[in-house]
Design a protein around this nucleic acid. Structure first.
Length: 322
DNA sequence: AAAGATTCCAACCGCAAGTGA
DNA sequence: CTCACTTGCGGTTGGAATCTT
């Protein structure tokens, strides 16, 4: 059965030849694609418009980044996947020069296996039970993961107004600043923007390396209970949000997040000054010269956090912003 | 060296949402 | 509102490339 878009013409299928690529590149770079359905005819190609579009977007576009994914890209994919599930197009938007197809292929051929090898369910990002590890064909059932969760799990980390004190004076020795410095260093996994109204919680970057990630993290003599909260039906126990008005879990999916206080209240957005730390699998800073306390943040109103940036988040017991 | 098994990814398919007549 | 058409997305797959026996 042929495609709806090209059932009349005789169209070529399968791999593209260099000559076809050349024709498509020449046409789009000079004329733009306009309506994709008219591209093959105008470009002199025996293809359907859909095929032309796909070839251009996934392979011929000049702004594509080729080559292997970096570790940083891999980490970003995992972090965002934890939130969004298989929303490849959304994930790819956070990786300049990468396509949804490329991300999806990388996930299916590489990341998935890595996570399973680490005993992590690639669908839920929870730990697999021993039964699931032995027979991981069964792990896609979310109910099967319930047993992995603590009974009384609750939200964990939020950026709160104290961040301002911490950031505006890295040498501050005030008690609130010290308090925050004890908290775990976390990575923000995605690019937030302005329209979401939820606050954010976060889990350590090293979560998928850390078998105790549902437990307690020890750091600087302080311990922080680190528990997952709901983000989406696809990812019920992953990284996620709390609704700041009524405190319920946001069970829906989302693409973006606002860091800071709820709308109408003081809004502290932050951007890091260089350099950023590089954390190893255990969450330790790979560059010992970059102590956490030396990190300096500029707080700017309504700025966008760069993808994958690090910031120090303060654990708070409840989301009372006043 | 050769055959069989496995991996990987470019491209396909069907569906849903958007758009405009 | 319906209908036709386009665009974009995620799941799936064919077969080339690579690995294993």
């Amino acid at each position: 059965m042929g495609h709806n878009c090209c059932s009349k013409q005789k169209v070529k299928r399968g791999l593209w030849s260099p000559e076809e690529d050349e024709k498509l590149i020449k046409y789009i770079t000079t004329q733009g694609h306009g309506s994709w359905s008219s591209v093959p005819k105008l470009a002199g190609l025996q293809r359907c418009g859909k095929s032309c579009r796909l070839r251009w977007i996934n392979y011929l576009r000049p702004d594509l980044k080729r080559g292997s994914f970096t570790e940083r890209e891999e980490r970003i994919i995992i972090d965002i996947h934890r939130i969004l599930g298989n929303r490849w197009a959304q994930i790819a938007k956070h990786l300049p020069g990468r396509t949804d197809n490329e991300v999806k292929n990388f996930w299916n051929s590489c990341i998935k296996k890595k996570l399973i090898a680490q005993g992590i369910d690639p669908n839920t990002h929870n730990l697999l039970s021993s039964t699931q590890i032995i027979n991981n064909n069964n792990y896609s059932n979310n109910n099967a993961c319930n047993t992995l969760l603590p009974h009384n799990y609750s939200p964990v980390f939020f950026v709160d107004s104290q961040m301002k004190e911490y950031s505006s004076s890295s040498s501050s020795s005030s008690s609130s600043s010290m308090e925050i410095m004890k908290s775990t260093f976390l990575q923000l996994p995605f690019i937030p923007s302005s329209h979401e109204t939820n606050t954010m919680s976060a889990l350590p970057t090293s979560e998928y390396q850390n078998p105790n990630f549902f437990g307690t993290i020890q750091e600087n003599q302080s311990s922080i209970t680190c528990l997952p909260i709901s983000s989406s039906p696809l990812n019920p126990y992953g990284f996620g949000f709390i609704d700041e008005n009524n405190g319920i879990f946001n069970g829906g999916s989302f693409d973006e997040v606002l860091i800071g206080a709820p709308p109408g209240k003081e809004e502290a957005m932050l951007q890091p000054k260089q350099p950023q730390p590089v954390l190893n699998h255990d969450g330790q800073n790979m560059n010992p010269s970059l102590e956490k306390s030396n990190f300096d943040f500029d707080f700017l109103e309504s700025t966008v956090l760069p993808c994958g940036m690090y910031c120090n988040l303060s654990p708070i017991d409840q989301f009372a912003w006043d």
